[in-house]
């Protein structure tokens, strides 16, 4: 017996595919937001306290070496099934590029600019928020963009702990290997993740145009 073609499958399951894509996007963005806030904070800390720098960057790197399957399994023990362990795992994976680029971005700010800010009477927090972070922002944003593309793929695996998103299709496809729709499902899920990754990449590129000062653009 022959099943529907891939295109027929997509047309028949439009609503479901669209819903899963939206879920996938939302869970990625939520995790990314958490990762960005924590990552930038850790990056600032690592930049300011030299003694902590190696430890923070090393730990963020270590997290990336944990197989995602294992991390999901560990987090389920703590947080139960569903979206929560997925968000936490993805946020953890997103840290390394963000932390690293925050440190690199801050280190790239001209010392003369920072000294001038200090000399005008800007306190250290004002200096950080008004001068250093805005100047480091193009580099930090690149880190966030790399993380987005990185975790959009890992998010697909969240389905094994009952997480939402396109991973559900891939997992279902795996379960039904041999049935006519199995390949279509896996293909639709995979293709969706890839397209989402490309879309996110472009979206962050566009975000740079709005959030990077004209004075810093080429």
């Amino acid at each position: 017996m022959t099943g529907p073609t891939f295109w027929e499958y997509v047309q028949q399951n439009q609503v479901k595919l669209w819903t899963l894509t939206q879920q996938h996007l939302v869970i990625t963005l939520v995790a990314l937001a958490v990762g960005a806030v924590v990552g930038i904070a850790l990056g600032v800390l690592a930049y300011r306290v030299r003694q902590l720098r190696g430890g923070i960057i090393g730990t963020a790197g270590l997290i990336l070496t944990i197989p995602s399957l294992a991390l999901y399994a560990l987090l389920v023990g703590l947080l139960g099934l569903g979206a929560l362990p997925v968000v936490v795992a993805l946020a953890m994976y997103s840290l390394l590029p963000i932390v690293r680029n925050t440190v690199a971005g801050l280190a790239g700010v001209s010392p003369a600019v920072v000294e001038a800010a200090q000399g005008q009477g800007m306190g250290s927090w004002r200096r950080l928020l008004r001068i250093q972070l805005p100047l480091a922002w193009p580099v930090i944003l690149t880190g966030v963009r790399v993380s987005a593309v990185l975790i959009v793929g890992i998010a697909a695996l969240g389905a094994i702990v009952n997480g939402p998103g396109l991973g559900v299709l891939i997992l279902d496809g795996l379960r039904r290997v041999g049935s006519p729709v199995a390949l279509n499902m896996a293909l639709a899920g995979t293709l969706g993740v890839v397209l989402l990754g490309v879309a996110l990449d472009l979206a962050f590129l566009g975000l740079g145009r709005f959030t990077i000062s004209r004075g810093l653009r080429g």
């Binding site: 001209s110 003369a112 600019v113 920072v114 000294e115 001038a116 800010a117 000399g119 005008q120 001068i131 805005p134 100047l135 000062s213 004075g215 810093l216």
Partner: peptide, 13 residues
């Protein structure tokens, strides 16, 4: 305070 490298804030007008 004026320094040799000036240190203007490049992201500000």
């Amino acid at each position: 305070y004026v320094i040799q490298q000036v240190g203007l804030f490049p992201h500000l007008t």
